[in-house]
Design a protein around this nucleic acid. Structure first.
Lengths: 238, 238
DNA sequence: AAATTAAGCGTCAAACAGACGATTAATACA
DNA sequence: TGTATTAATCGTCTGTTTGACGCTTAATTT
């Protein structure tokens, strides 16, 4: 259906969505990149992206692109920032809405890699990307840190069953620090978000570490926020 | 200059910028709205917005629109979120990048009000707006709270000289709570961000309250972040 | 069975939170 | 003139959380 009237303004542009996809393989924080299939800058590493469809909103476009790339639906997906420098794409002005996604890397369908020339890179060893995609990744990394400091989003990167050492390593990877494991356990237990299973992971150590799952009900309430200046600002409802 | 090649994709759309402008008059948190000048929904209350120009990036477009509306430059301006529902504008598909701004309401040039049919509303008494602008405002309010809990951004809403009671009232307005003034003073002093002046404001009370200014140098370092799970995540550089 | 490795618990001091009592300054008014 | 009033500001108390770190426990290797 065509709508009859239009605005009297000539500057219509392409709108794209680019996805920063994070994964965690138990050792390193990783990012999923693809070899760009079209000109300009064909065969360069880039984020997975695409133009928005006619009847799609932005989130839907991001979900579609993510599904195409990973075979996954219902992924943690968050709008990051929109990039609109007139010269950011040399071929034609394109405004790009960046989304960042957290996926369980084990659920990723590897056969897709070949199809899209996709590859997982350790975040700190990722190659330089086209256009302003490096800026997007940098921003996404910061946002991930920021969010993870207040919300239990890093669980999105873990498989359904995971051990505390795995979790701790993930935090250490994300923030590039090392943490005291004794204090870490104490804090994690204090959140009440984890359910201890009877099963143990014996691969990582001699003693073996218990598996845990997320308490999904409590997860939805999220961490209480750790704010001193304003008590619990996220819980204020007005 | 026309660029020759284009992407083989037909779905070019309008990109707009909408501004959520917050102000504080010493009593209430306010928002600046305009009566929409064009169809559709002419004469309805809305956010101030406009289409992006050909050689403008998004931030520049927002600055331009803000300057047109308020006469101000160099205001606190932050990209909020981008809205792209296909039907959000009934006339024609328009993707809108929302920005939120914090201004010192005293610097606002009132003669502009007439020109754009602009009006300041108490945030909690603001009228319903066109399109998805209500959603934008709601999001902006949340972002303001979130940001203000970790960063000293509320000073952007205050005049150069202000009193502690004014500052406290501002926090109370933003979060819709009442705070203990004795504890508030203690915390504010602990930040080291304020410089006490000799001058007093005698209007507000019998005793009078000292004026303070921001220590701009320290302001730039921002508050330290109050995070328990990860120590000082914002200060981590990698 | 002894050494090794890593998981996980307990303790402590310092920092900081919220609650709230007491003091101080300036004005209003009897 | 002094006394009540109002609001700004300081101080104290108690409970919670933090980071540091010693110690115990479980399971495997030799």
């Amino acid at each position: 259906m065509m709508r009859e009237l239009k605005y009297r303004h000539s500057n219509r542009v392409l709108v794209a969505v680019d996805c920063i996809v994070f994964g965690y393989d138990g050792e390193h924080l990783k990012i999923l990149l693809v070899k760009r299939a079209i000109e300009p800058q064909k065969d360069q590493w880039s984020l997975m992206g695409g133009f928005i469809g006619k009847n799609e909103n932005l989130q839907e476009a991001a979900s579609r692109i993510l599904h195409t790339l990973t075979g996954l639906k219902n992924v943690y997906l968050e709008q990051l920032e929109t990039y609109g420098d007139p010269e950011r794409d040399p071929l034609e002005r394109t405004v790009s809405v960046a989304y960042f996604a957290l996926i369980d890397i084990n659920k990723y369908k590897t056969q897709i890699s070949d199809l899209y020339h996709a590859e997982w890179f350790e975040l700190r060893k990722a190659p330089s990307l086209i256009f302003d995609h490096n800026v997007m990744v940098h921003k996404a990394k910061n946002r991930l840190r920021y969010q993870a400091a207040f919300h239990p989003i890093l669980f999105e990167l873990l498989p359904p069953k995971f051990t505390i050492p795995q979790l701790q390593n993930l935090y250490e990877q994300v923030y590039g620090i090392s943490m005291d494991n004794r204090n870490f356990i104490r804090k994690v237990n204090a959140t009440g978000l984890l359910i201890k299973l009877d099963e143990k992971d014996r691969a990582g150590s001699k003693r073996g570490a218990y598996y845990y799952t997320l308490d999904v009900t409590k997860y939805k309430d999220k961490f209480r926020s750790f704010i001193h200046f304003i008590p619990y600002p996220e819980q204020l409802v007005h």
